[in-house]
């Protein structure tokens, strides 16, 4: 299980945000993307997830192994926690809903509607979905937003466990997470310099 990114360039709308991003990861690695807001962390994660297309560069990873969580929770308020999770279990074709609920301490909340959950509980639900997917590559966009120290610790612990079990995680966060195998990648170094915009409309003169 590897991810290999070579000279990835990506753009948001007409604007190029990242240039020549290179990294490679193997089983057990965790990569933390850093950089100020707007530098392109979410954009890069969406490219890795296959939701967006890179404008150039090559990306080698197994799309069948991806579990993605964006900055939105993907939680349905009208469903209970158990229903939310069993829906995702159906989507991913796994049947470990009960174990996952127990593992994340959601037993007491299982029959509660997701509308009544706190931000931390919703994130925990999102994390449970990642585990439930039984996929090796976790891509997580800001998993620690609006969480207290305890929940942040829980997230770090889950990601560590996942990597220890041979998975790969790529995430963006502003906090210092306690993940032993974590490497950081500062995206500021990939900001394109002014004269490298490759838009076809900027070439030549007319």
């Amino acid at each position: 299980m590897t991810i290999k990114a070579t000279n990835i360039c990506c753009s948001r709308g007409p604007r190029q945000v990242l240039q020549d991003v290179c990294f490679s990861l193997t089983s057990g690695d965790c990569l933390i993307l850093r950089g100020p807001n707007g530098v392109g962390k979410s954009t890069l994660l969406r490219v890795l997830a296959g939701l967006s297309q890179q404008s150039s560069g090559t990306l080698e990873l197994d799309h069948e192994e991806i579990a993605y969580s964006g900055h939105l929770d993907a939680v349905k308020f009208q469903l209970t926690i158990a229903e939310n999770l069993s829906f995702w279990a159906g989507v991913y074709g796994t049947d470990t809903t009960a174990q996952v609920i127990a593992h994340f301490g959601l037993n007491d909340l299982a029959d509660r509607y997701a509308a009544n959950l706190s931000a931390g509980q919703k994130r925990r639900l999102g994390l449970a979905r990642m585990t439930l997917s039984n996929r090796k590559i976790w891509l997580m966009d800001e998993p620690t937003t609006s969480l207290d120290a305890e929940h942040t610790g829980l997230i770090a612990q889950s990601i560590s466990d996942h990597c220890f079990a041979g998975g790969i995680a790529v995430l963006s966060t502003h906090l210092d997470l306690d993940i032993p195998s974590a490497k950081t990648l500062d995206l500021l170094q990939f900001i394109p310099t002014k004269d490298t915009n490759t838009s076809i409309f900027l070439q030549g003169s007319f």
Binding site: A49, G50, E64, A67, Y68, G70, K76
Partner: peptide
Amino acid sequence: HEDGTLDVLATSPL
């Protein structure tokens, strides 16, 4: 789309 479910579904096996 609004709550992010569509993004996750698009990366799922479906």
